[in-house]
Design a protein around this nucleic acid. Structure first.
Lengths: 340, 340
DNA sequence: AAGTGGTATGCGAACGATTGCAGGATTGCT
DNA sequence: AGCAATCCTGCAATCGTTCGCATACCACTT
């Protein structure tokens, strides 16, 4: 089957290609005589016509595509965000280019360039890191851009994030309520806004509650299991008196902490309670199941897509940077502890 | 910044646009005088030229894009496959459209249509189900297509999969070696080739080893936790004598089975050993950790991309349908059992 | 009969890059 | 000096759609 074009239909229906174009465009179908319109549509479906989005994109200067840059496609927290974006776009018949920055500035720069070359109508990225400001702002001058999940404070870029400060506070609140008087936190990477938010929210609440806060001397380089274990070990080495609870900046690190505790003969929650972040599916399966913070990831994805589309359609930015509320999910890793 | 075109560079460098096009195309750069070539390149980078992939795509009939259809973006087994594809393509400066079929034939048909309209150079799908043959074959006539992970036996479509039959056999072999004489399996969806393969490989090996095979009267509708639990309950209800080991068609179902066992006061592995499939990260965290089958997902993604590119470049299909070898990862859910 | 307004269609020039063809300039050879 | 080969560049058409403009037709009004 050689591809069938507007010309073919035009010939088949005895009209000019431009008429076919109009007849097939819902926006302009009213400009063409109902009778011809029907004839054209019949011809189109008979020949199996399928518009050429590339040609259309060139002519209109709108491709109906959106570019997405994520740090790591394999990251389980990100998948629901991507789903949210895709599902939203599918309904608007736009398509999504997915790329990976791997938390590498150079690679980020390259994929952004590729996306611009592809003439995407907008770019969404969940991969922003402190230090990317200049690059991202420059891109944002050329195409509507939305920061999702991670944002860049003070950059003026449109963003839609989880309220991580509140998430950190929820964790602290929960621990304080359980009676803990000395708590610790294991931080994720310093150059990622979402971890900073968690850290700030947690620390602020703890301080204002007159509870002691201890921390290891380092932050996690990457928010992975081994880093959780390492930081927990570090903490055990460094402090004189152990905390009775630990807030890990994500579930993987929480599990790493659990391993470190076990290795030192400490039990959770009896000796030390543990809170994670993200409500990854694994938190239900661990022993003990881990108390964690649940985030509306899918919803965030949908909203990021909404925002991108809004930016495309009317070039004005939605006013307040949006942030979505997290929820605490209590499980045995904190519920079994009791001050004695 | 209004976009800069070949014309702009041409004007700036005092040559014709076609010369600019040649100078900038690595393939044809040798056709143009080294001196002019330099002048053109200088002008291009000075003006910040960035080719228009849309225009180029229209003219060349090649968009350097590939479409991917997955069943569920959130599925943790799929993420590494997507990464493999994306990482491979990134190096060839092609981009990936990602779409979701949600295991729905109608939706699959719609997204394939969209992809065709976008003039992708090839389509990769990990979402093929029995019953999709006609649709997929029809699409394959219009654009190179690769089935990944799931294939359609007898369809003649190019595919690259895991060797699930072997995976099933590995599970059986392991259990038989451990001394089990009566085993069961909890099947995933019937209309997905990878589950069928597991089922066949397992059953064949079990039979030829003169070990008794019992199964619940149903297969899982979706391969999820609740189905694993349901099938395990069903099995416990239905059989006179319980098996001493169960092969669940994926890790989630395995964990569901674990829950059902616990609910009936049965312990794993002492009473019943459990094997999962996929080596999802959760299998390490459960209690007990679950023996499972590990698959080279990322590698499969890379190879799927290779195959797609090969099909694009020379239209002949690589001869044998490829399938990649799985590996058994033994953990406590089977190692602690012993015949008495 | 001339003028006005509306509707339905055709015409042709874009969008930006690519490429077959042709021709001008240069070089080498006899 | 004459001729061919080689190298480099320009010309113009093309990919498939879209859209501003012009035009043709019809129906009314005055």
């Amino acid at each position: 089957m050689p591809k069938v074009t507007l010309q073919d239909i035009a010939a088949h229906a005895g009209v000019h290609a431009s008429t076919v174009s109009r007849a097939l465009d819902p926006e302009k179908a009213n400009l063409v005589n109902p009778e011809t319109r029907e004839r054209v549509r019949a011809a189109a479906s008979e020949l199996g016509y399928r518009g050429d989005a590339v040609a259309s994109g060139l002519r209109r200067g709108r491709t109906n595509t959106i570019g997405l840059v994520v740090a790591d496609i394999g990251n389980p927290f990100i998948a629901p965000v991507v789903r949210g974006i895709e599902n939203n776009l599918e309904g608007r018949n736009k398509m999504l280019f997915v790329t990976e920055s791997q938390d590498d500035h150079g690679r980020m720069s390259r994929v952004l360039d590729s996306l611009l070359g592809r003439r995407v109508d907008a770019i969404i990225t969940t991969a922003a890191r402190l230090g990317d400001e200049r690059l991202l702002r420059q891109v944002a001058e050329q195409v509507p851009m939305v920061l999702a999940v991670r944002h860049l404070p003070g950059s003026g870029l449109v963003s839609i994030t989880h309220d991580d400060e509140r998430g950190g506070r929820l964790a602290a609140e929960h621990l304080v309520q359980q009676g803990h008087r000395r708590v610790a936190q294991l931080r994720g990477s310093d150059d990622i806004s979402s971890f900073r938010g968690r850290g700030r929210g947690f620390a602020e609440y703890v301080e204002q509650s007159d509870v002691e806060l201890v921390e290891p001397s380092e932050s996690g380089r990457h928010p992975v299991l081994s880093e959780g274990r390492r930081l927990m070990e570090l903490l055990i080495d460094e402090v004189d008196e152990l905390p009775t609870a630990v807030f890990a900046h994500n579930d993987l690190m929480a599990f790493g902490a659990l391993q470190a505790l076990a290795a030192h003969g400490l039990s959770c929650p009896a000796d030390i309670a543990v809170v994670g972040y993200n409500d990854t599916i694994m938190t239900e399966f661990t022993d003990p199941p881990i108390t964690t913070i649940r985030l509306p990831d899918y919803e965030l994805g949908r909203m990021a897509a909404d925002t991108a589309v809004a930016l495309i359609e009317d070039d004005h930015r939605p006013d307040p940077p949006l942030s979505l509320p997290p929820v605490l999910v209590p499980r045995r890793s904190t519920l079994g502890w009791s001050s004695s």
